[in-house]
Every structure is written in structure tokens, then in C-alpha cells.
Amino acid sequence: MPDRRFALLLMAPAAVFMAVFVAWPLVRLVADSLYDIDALADTRSFVGLANYADLLADPDFRAAAWRTAVYTAVVVAAEFTLGLAAALLFHTLGQRSRLLRTLFLYPLMIAPVVAGLLWRFLLVDNFGLLNDLLTRVGLISGPDAIGWLSDPDIVLFSVALPDIWLTTSFVALVLFAGLQNIPGDVVEAARLDGASPAQTLFRIILPLLRPVIAVVLIVRGIDAARAFDIIAIQTNGGPQQASETLSLLVYRTMVRFGEPGPAAAATLYLVAMLVVAVAAFGALWRPGGKP
């Protein structure tokens, strides 16, 4: 059997799965966005792009879109910074970092719902473990001094903490794998030429890691933008919708309020993520090219 046909045969089961469980639901989602659907009366009336116009005029949608963008930027920036620092540390230690790498990967094995519950107990007002610890060391006046999950001004950053803790290890693992493929003689030549550690990092290591960085940022950016369970389990979008992202807004519109038409118009959400992913891919992915 030719290699090309054999490769297609191996990919066929995954392609069928993606077509049935991903492509078809997306087609239905786009089709439903063009109708006004009454699930209780089982009626459908074609409204064209009216759902999209209403969605763009909805202040709740614009606010949720802004919160989603802020949440994604905070999560991805923090995870990339911490993950890169951990990967560089592991790379510097070499084989001595095996135990540390194993321990660092443990959060990756925890389900997001479990992580959300854990951090909810850590951050909850009055009897949260974090505020209690800060009170004991004298950094705050009392266990209710900081409303991590009840203050609308900081709740969006608070619910991002479990996501950062959970998946920084994934970023570190991918970047560490990329560091293993950087030729050691290139880095050594830079050091012999008098390059400082900062110059080596920004002019040698990071440019050579462009393809890996592109994969990390796109995967984690899309994953963070669609965050649902880890936020829902902590605040369910509250208080005052201050932590309601687009995923929670779609859930509230379609499942709780039974309005599949407007919720399906959230295909704009998918299109926006696709555009950002393509732009990031084009800006960062330059394997073998000039840095």
C-alpha cells in the first residue's frame, strides 16, 4: 500500500469522529443562528442576520467579549512567562531536574472542576485558607479584608488563578521539549562571543523557539478563551456578571433561558478565535526562516 494511502487510512477514524462530533454540530450551530427558535412551541422562523445584529447591539455580549479578552490575555501571559522560566530552569539543570519536572506536572493531571473547587475553598471570603494565611502573617487585617470571589473589581483575575496554576505545567513541558531541539553549539558560540544571558535568550533562544511558541500561544489562547467549567464552579459568572465570559453567556442564553437562536449567533465568537489564531500563526510560525 502506498504511504499516502496508508496515512489516509490511519487518519480516517479521527476524521470521521471530527466530522460527526465537531463539524456537523458547527454546521447546525451556524444554521440555527439564522432562525428565531422557540424550543417550547417547537417553531422556527427564518430571521436572517437579525440574531447577529441583536447580539452586536447587546451590552451584555460586548461586556462578556471584553472580559473574555482580558481573561485570555492574563492567563496566557502569566502561563507563558512562568512556563518559560520553568522550562529554562529545567533545561539548565538537565538530568537533575527529573524529579522537579515530575512534581511540576502534577497539576496537569487534575480535572478543571476539581481545580475550581480547590481554589474556591482557598479564595472564598471570611473562611478562605488564603485570607486566613495572610491574616496570620499580618499582611491583611482580617479574613474578610480581600473579597477574591466577591469583589467585582478583582474577581476576573481571581478566577484566572486556578487556570494559571493548572496549565502552566503544560506550557513548561512544551517549551522544555522545544529547548531540547536547540543546537547547543549555537548557544555556546553566542556565549563565547560575549553575549549576555538576556541577549542569548532574546536573540538566540526565543527566535529559534518561534514555532513552539506559536503552538503554545494558539492552543492555550483558544483554550483560555473558551474557559467555562473552572469559572462556573467558582462564581458562575458573578458577582454582578463581573466574571461572566462568552462561554458562560452562551450557556446562560441557550440552556438556562432557552434561546438557541441568539446563542447560536455566538458563532461570531468562533470566527473571532479563528482570526486571532490565524494571525498569531502567521506572525510567529517561521520554522527554518530568518528570526
Rank of each mutant, 00 (worst) to 15 (best):
A65R: 07
E79Y: 13
G258T: 06
L123Y: 13
I146T: 04
K290T: 10
S158K: 09
I140C: 04
L10K: 04
L117Q: 09
Y52I: 04
A198M: 12
L284Y: 10
R120K: 14
L246H: 08
V30C: 09
V255L: 13
A19Y: 01
D163V: 02
A265M: 00
L201N: 01
I230Y: 06
A264D: 10
D60G: 15
D60T: 14
I230Q: 13
T235Q: 08
S33H: 00
Y251M: 08
L10T: 04
D193G: 05
F21E: 01
R96P: 03
F21V: 11
L179F: 07
D193Y: 02
L208T: 01
A69D: 10
V124H: 10
V271T: 11
L56C: 02
V271I: 15
P197S: 07
V216Y: 06
S150P: 01
F257N: 14
P162S: 04
L173W: 12
A283T: 02
A23P: 01
A172V: 05
L175T: 04
R96W: 10
Q241R: 14
S158D: 12
Q241H: 14
V75L: 04
V276P: 01
A14L: 13
F281I: 01
D153W: 08
T135Y: 05
E188M: 02
I146G: 01
F121P: 00
R136E: 12
A7T: 05
Y106W: 14
V155I: 11
A214V: 04
A145F: 04
R96V: 02
L84K: 08
A115N: 13
T68I: 12
A232K: 13
D163S: 13
L9A: 14
P207G: 01
A283F: 12
V70S: 07
L9R: 07
G83H: 12
A39V: 11
P152A: 06
R44G: 00
L173P: 03
L100G: 10
A195F: 05
L179V: 05
Q240E: 13
A214W: 09
F21P: 03
N126T: 12
Q234E: 14
L93A: 12
A69I: 15
D60V: 11
V113N: 09
A190W: 07
L89E: 11
A85I: 11
G178D: 00
